[in-house]
Every structure is written in C-alpha cells, then in structure tokens.
Nucleic acid binder design. Structure first.
Lengths: 136, 136
DNA sequence: AGTAAAATGGTACTTTAGTATGAGCCTCAC
DNA sequence: GTGAGGCTCATACTAAAGTACCATTTTACT
C-alpha cells in the first residue's frame, strides 16, 4: 500500500512536469504538437507498464512468500522445519539424516512431532498441508 | 509472440488515431493543449497497464498450466495419473483404493509403475518431480 | 546457576509403502 | 482373431515410515 501511494505520487509529479514542458515547448514553437503528443504518450505508456509490472510482481511474490508467522503459530522448531523442507524435496529419513549429520532416529522423532503439529497422518499429507499454508 | 505483435499493432494504430484527433482538436481550437495532453497521457497509461496485465497473466497461467505433453511423454496411463494426483493430495494407498473403488493391491501396482516412469524412489519424490515437471 | 525447550538418539514395535511375480479380463488396432 | 497395452487383483516378501517411551545433552534465557 505504501509503495502504491509512492508510485502514484511520483506519477502525478511526472505528469505535471510533462505538462509544463509541453506547454513551454508549444509556446516557444520549437516542436510540433504531434511530437510532443508522441513523447507524452510513450512516456505515459512506459509508466503504465512499469506500474503494472511492479504491482504484479509484488502480487506473485506474496503468493510464493513463506508465511513465517504460520510456522511460529504451529510451534515448529528450527530443526523440525528443516526436516520438513527435506521431506518436501522427496528425501527418505535416512537421506535426511545423512544430509543433516544426525541419526535416522532423530529424524524419525522430528518427523513424528512434525506430523502432530501439522495435523497430518503421513509425510505426503504434511507436504500438501505445508504448501497450502505457504510455509514451504 | 503472435499476441505481442497483435497488441503492439493495435497500440500503434491507437496512437495514430490519437494524434489525428489531437491535431484536429488543436486546429479547431475547441480544447486547450494541456487537456489534450492529459487525455493522451491517461489513455496511454491505461493502455500500458492493460498490455502489461495481459502479458503477466499469460505468463502466470503458463506457469500453472499442466503439461499434458509431458504426461504422454512419460507414458503415464490415465489411471496412473489419477493415482498420482491422489498421492499429491497426501492420501495413503488404502485411502486412494477406497476413493477409486479398487483394491489396495491395484493401487500398489499403479504406484510402483508410476515411480519407475517418474524415475522416483518414493512417493514424496514423485510429488516433487511431478510438480517440477508441471504435470500436477 | 537453574530451568525449560529443543535436539539428539536408542529400543521395540506396528503400520504403510514398495517390489516381484503371476494371472485374468477388457479394449482397441492391425 | 490375435497381440499389445491397460486395469484389475492376489500372495509373499522387503524396506521404509511412523509410534511410544525413555534418556541424555545442548541451547537459550532469566
């Protein structure tokens, strides 16, 4: 929202400057009206493209963005969250254990706690739930 | 690409029309130059927003779209694909069996074939691969 | 220093998942 | 009508995944 206001503010200023410039140019007779029109149109068009691009990107980013609040809310610990990410990559408990330099028992414990916290019955369900909650 | 050309074509035509209109208006003296400038700017801005919006949407849709060609390429049968989707929802073999009105044995067979075709070792990996290939 | 939470890991067990193999049935193309 | 591919299902097995319980050790914080 702050960004939107900022962008629209600069936009208005830019337009005012443009009008001033065009007025001056017309009065002084250095340019033809059509050229100035063309310049104004192109600049406005560019601004339009730019604004929308920013807005869309902000939107798509927010859709991909990880909901850290939700992670806290669920009470997931650092280690549990790490394990969750590895599960989502399709690794087995043994593979995760090797990757994180701990025993498979430890991973099993983490996974078990993870499933309770995510209210999932299986790791596949944990993946689905995590994705729907935007935490991975 | 075709769309891009089409959009830019219409854009150029629209600009030409605008210039003609502005020329006429200035000559006839009905409007002040500033107003015409403003109108041109607003219209161009709107066009800019519109173009970018279309382009971005087309992009985001293509990212979500399911790659049916890839499914064929992998040789996934109709039933196998159905099972794959259920796996991605986090269901167990037994649950999938009930949902599709077949025995668990059948699901196991499908899953096994599925894993070979997707070159996955586990169902969680199958989910990851499927998502990366845009087939679910 | 004391404490609570987190991290680690072990044993023992049950449940799912996945493999291998074989077999019956159906459909569609040649 | 024959064969290939797809769908179904069963048995028997191995391998993972997941649960329950307990016991240390680390870490972080007051």
């Amino acid at each position: 929202m702050k960004k939107t206001i900022l962008i629209f503010g600069s936009l208005i200023i830019a337009l005012l400057l443009l009008f001033q410039f065009s007025k001056y140019a017309v009065v002084s007779g250095d340019f033809q009206v059509e050229y100035i029109m063309a310049i104004v149109a192109i600049i406005s068009l560019t601004i339009g493209l730019f604004i929308n691009n920013k807005a869309q990107k902000a939107l798509s980013v927010s859709n991909q963005k990880i909901d850290f609040k939700k992670i806290e809310e669920l009470g997931l610990s650092k280690r549990e969250y790490e394990v969750l990410k590895e599960i989502a990559l399709g690794l087995s408990n043994q593979e995760i254990a090797k990757k994180l330099f701990v025993s498979e028992s430890t991973i099993k414990t983490h996974v078990s706690n993870l499933l309770v916290k995510l209210n999932a019955k299986r790791r596949t369900q944990a993946i689905q739930i995590s994705k729907s909650l935007n935490i991975i």
